[in-house]
Design a protein around this nucleic acid. Sequence first.
DNA 1: TAGCTATTGACAACATGTTGTCGTGATGAC
DNA 2: GTCATCACGACAACATGTTGTCAATAGCTA
Lengths: 158, 158
Amino acid sequence: MTVPPRKDWPEPGPASEGGALLTDVIIATFRLNARLMEAAQDLAAHGGLTAAWWQVLGGVLDEPRSVAEVGRIMGVSRQGVQRVADLLVDRGLAEYRPNPAHRRAKLLACTEAGYWAIRQISVAQHPWADKLSDGVDLDDLSTTLATMQTLITRLEQA
Amino acid sequence: MTVPPRKDWPEPGPASEGGALLTDVIIATFRLNARLMEAAQDLAAHGGLTAAWWQVLGGVLDEPRSVAEVGRIMGVSRQGVQRVADLLVDRGLAEYRPNPAHRRAKLLACTEAGYWAIRQISVAQHPWADKLSDGVDLDDLSTTLATMQTLITRLEQA
DNA sequence: TAGCTATTGACAACATGTTGTCGTGATGAC
DNA sequence: GTCATCACGACAACATGTTGTCAATAGCTA
C-alpha cells in the first residue's frame, strides 16, 4: 500500500499557530511516508522481495512465530499476514514448522534462502541510510524524533 | 490503505550515529502516518466520507478538474481517482461537467452536498488540530517540519 | 471431567490502489 | 490538411490489506 503525497489536503487553517504548523507537519508526514515506502520497495527488491514480504519475514528473523503473532507484532490483521506467509513458503523463503503448543497454529520460520534475501537487502540498506542522514544535524534529528513520538503518543491515547 | 506500525523493522544498525537516529525517525514516520490516517478516517466520517473520498473531493474544491489532473496533483494513478470520482458522483457529492477543452475528459466538480460534507469535516477537524498541537513547543515543531522536508527533498532527488 | 471462552486458521467479500491495454480525442510537425 | 504522437477515459487483472464468519483447538473454571 502506498500513501501518496497530499498537495491539497483540505485544511481550513486552524486558529492557533501550533495548529497551522501541525498541518504542514501532517502533510510532510504523508509525503515522507510515501517516499520511504518507495525506498523500502527498492531496497526489498535487492533481495527479491516486496516491502510486504520483507516486513513479514522480518517478523520471524529472530525466532519462529505463529501467523497471528506476527500480525499482532506488526499491527496488521492476521489474514493479511497469512496471505503473505503462504507466498513466502511457496517461494521457499520461509517454512511452516509444527507448533508443540498448538496443533493448528503452525510456526512460520525463515529458511536459509530467506536469510540470504534479508542479507542482500541489508547490504543495500546500510549505505542508503547513512547517505540519507549524512549532513543532517543530529540535534535536529533528535528533536524531530521526540516531536513525532509526542504526536504518536497523543494520537494513541485518544 | 493503512500503513501499520513496524515494531521489528529489520535494521542491521547502520554504522553512523545519524543513520541510527534516522532509523528511529523512519519507524516513527510509519507509526505517525498510520495514526494520522486513522484520525483522517474518523474526521472524514463526520462528513459521511472516507479518507480517500475526502482526498479526491479536496482536489476539486477550488475549481473543477479532470480526473487525470486530480491524480497528478495527488500523486495517485488516474485510474484510482476515477473509481473514487465515479462513487462521489454516484452519491451526489460531485458531478461531471462538460470540458470545453476536451470532449472526453469531463471535469469533476464538487456539488453543494459535497461542500456541505467538507464543511462538516472541517468543523470537527479544527479543534482536533488545535488540541493535538497544544503544548507542543513551536520551535520543535518548526525544526521537525524542516527536517522532514529535508529528508523528503533528498528522497525525491534520487 | 464437562463446558465455556478466547485464539487460530480457512474462506469469502470487499476497499483501495497499481499496472497494462485499448480506443478515442487533442495537438503539433510537416 | 494529414499524420504521428501524446493525453485521457474505460476496462481488466492484480497486489495489498481489511472485515466478517465459521470450525477447530487450547485453556480456564466449576
